[in-house]
Design a protein around this nucleic acid. Structure first.
Lengths: 126, 126
DNA sequence: AAATATAACGCAACTTAGTTGTAGTAACAA
DNA sequence: TTGTTACTACAACTAAGTTGCGTTATATTT
């Protein structure tokens, strides 16, 4: 399937991701768009956008789900191994612009990988 | 602080981690020891054991919290960069016995890192 | 342009991992 | 054995995310 209809919620969410390169958590989107859309809608649209390969998702600290625009990654072969960076001070998350090599492991089949690096971001480092 | 008193719950939890090298999720421990201990107790003892450097924790898929015995990692300098492997079929999780180099990032301060690799484990690969 | 099919939506109720407050209990030192 | 206080159980809560379903909106067909 995928995103078929161009509805207001789809456009609003895409707009959020187009105005910034940072990752956005589902929680944050729900808070931000609370007056306009129901949280169920937001979760479902995010699911769809991920299925379509428009966004990819990952878990930040405390198990919150984050979404970011897919740049290199296709919907079919979704083997993103670029790390995500979460600032421990301001909470912001972004995708780091390089790949990390995930090693093959004897007798196991690697399918997906997630690297979460935590620390202080540029702004909070000063 | 740390684990001060040798209570039944502390012993029972340590026993679980000593009889296997696999990681165990908080959820699983609560199910397993449900008749013996309250879930609050289990969460609190796990916290303590982690503070003490006896266990380390990380998030698996779906944001569940997993715990595993600390082998190399000291309580003070807790920069584990060994990957964790979660089997997508049977759900089992373990620590992979090698370290991964987490790169330094310009203008950022890396503090902790987490690598979660998902795929098929030895048993489910066949 | 109206009719139709169905994808998408809002709402409310639910699920569940994890947390908090508190009064009672048990570990351990004196 | 007594006193301090760390630890525990219980119940009530929090919050992210999910589910079911009747209604609405999109896009296709006539």
């Amino acid at each position: 399937m995928g995103v078929i209809r161009k509805t207001k919620s789809v456009e609003a969410l895409l707009h959020e991701f187009n105005t910034s390169d940072e990752a956005i958590s589902a929680k944050q989107l729900i808070e931000q768009l609370d007056s306009k859309f129901n949280k169920t809608t937001i979760y479902r649209v995010l699911d769809k956008l991920e299925e379509d390969g428009v966004l990819h998702s990952f878990l930040g600290k405390e198990g919150l789900k984050w979404y970011a625009k897919c740049n290199g990654c296709s919907a079919s072969k979704h083997k993103d191994v670029h790390p995500h960076f979460q600032c421990l001070k301001c909470g912001r998350v972004d995708c780091l612009p390089f790949s990390m090599a995930i090693p093959e492991i004897p007798n196991r089949k690697v399918e997906v990988s997630q690297v979460l690096i935590q620390g202080l971001c540029e702004k909070c480092c000063v």
